[in-house]
């Protein structure tokens, strides 16, 4: 009885192993493709940005010069004006090129991150089923290689709205602290509270924009659902229609892991955390000031 079971298990393992390997190769191929697209887009952006900087620096220089000599040197002014005009046109073109290149770079970056997420998930799954040994080490090396790439790409793309609070500053009142030292520590905490409070502005803005969009989209979708529910605007003309499919997420580089509603909830939770942290910091600063006053008496 055991040998047929063993045979079946061996056959299953033999079937699954190549499938996993094929999935890994496919995912790697996707990652490498997007990696190439991303590199090209990033270099293109850098080159456009570099060209813009040159034109922009010259434009700024000539404008500064114009400002200084406008009243004192009419001849030079007459020479400068057409030059500035020409540079302004070049600068406008360069600006739009930079904007387009930046968008391409961000789009391909989002797609690469999404592909990397999928590939790293797959590697994780494979590591779970691989005993410690050379194969495991290979998988781990591959995992580390692409994890580093993910960090690099995220760092190149710059800070997105981070939903992580910085650690609470380690500021404590010591028995030996003088009132001045305590007030300085309170000031540090108040400064941190101010920074935390400032970060709320971005979060609130994103919450407002997302909520507004969600409400409006839901309103239109509800209306359409009411029309569809009773076929209210379907005349008896036959010819069943083919609606085009929705735009697929990976053509926009958007992940599937989070719905807009989830994103909104995460932002709202984060906002509550930020507000609590700000209040905590201000409370601690107040305690420090009270203590400073007590010790000063």
């Amino acid at each position: 009885m055991r040998s047929p079971l063993l045979l079946a298990a061996t056959a299953l393992a033999a079937t699954v192993a190549p499938l996993r390997l094929a999935a890994q190769e496919n995912a790697l191929e996707v990652v490498e493709n997007w990696n190439q697209v991303y590199d090209a887009a990033y270099h293109n952006y850098q080159s456009k940005e570099g060209a813009f900087r040159i034109v922009d620096a010259e434009w700024v220089r000539l404008n500064d010069e114009l400002e200084q000599i406008r009243r004192t040197n009419p001849r030079r002014t007459r020479l400068l004006l057409p030059e500035i005009q020409q540079l302004s046109e070049q600068r406008t073109v360069a600006t739009s090129e930079v904007r387009a290149a930046r968008r391409q770079w961000h789009d391909s970056g989002d797609a690469l991150i999404s592909a990397l997420d999928g590939y790293l998930d797959l590697l994780n799954l494979q590591m779970q089923g691989t005993p410690i040994g050379d194969a495991f080490n290979d998988l781990l090396a591959e995992f580390n290689r692409w994890s580093q790439r993910l960090e690099e790409v995220e760092s190149q793309l710059g800070p997105r709205l981070s939903l992580e609070l910085r650690p609470m500053p380690d500021v404590r009142a010591l028995d030996t602290d003088t009132p001045v030292q305590l007030r300085n520590k309170a000031r540090l905490l108040e400064e941190e509270a101010r920074r935390v409070n400032n970060s709320l502005v971005d979060v609130e803005e994103e919450i407002d924009a997302l909520r507004r969009r969600q409400e409006r989209e839901r309103s239109s979708a509800d209306l359409q659902a009411r029309y569809d529910r009773f076929d209210d605007i379907v005349p008896p003309v036959g010819d069943p229609e083919v609606d085009p499919p929705e735009v697929v997420p990976d053509s926009t580089g958007t992940g599937l892991a989070q719905t807009p509603a989830q994103r909104l909830e995460r932002l709202e939770t984060f906002r509550d955390e930020v507000e609590a942290r700000r209040d905590q910091l201000l409370e601690q600063a107040r305690e420090f000031r009270d203590e400073a006053e007590r010790r000063g008496r």
Binding site: V37, A41, P240, V242, V248
Partner: peptide, 21 residues
């Protein structure tokens, strides 16, 4: 409705689809 779409470059996708009803 079964739809397979593939992004051939950022912002450009092709799709093939079969709907049975």
């Amino acid at each position: 409705d079964a739809n397979y779409s593939r992004a051939v470059s950022p912002g450009l996708a092709v799709f093939g689809r079969v709907v049975g009803e």
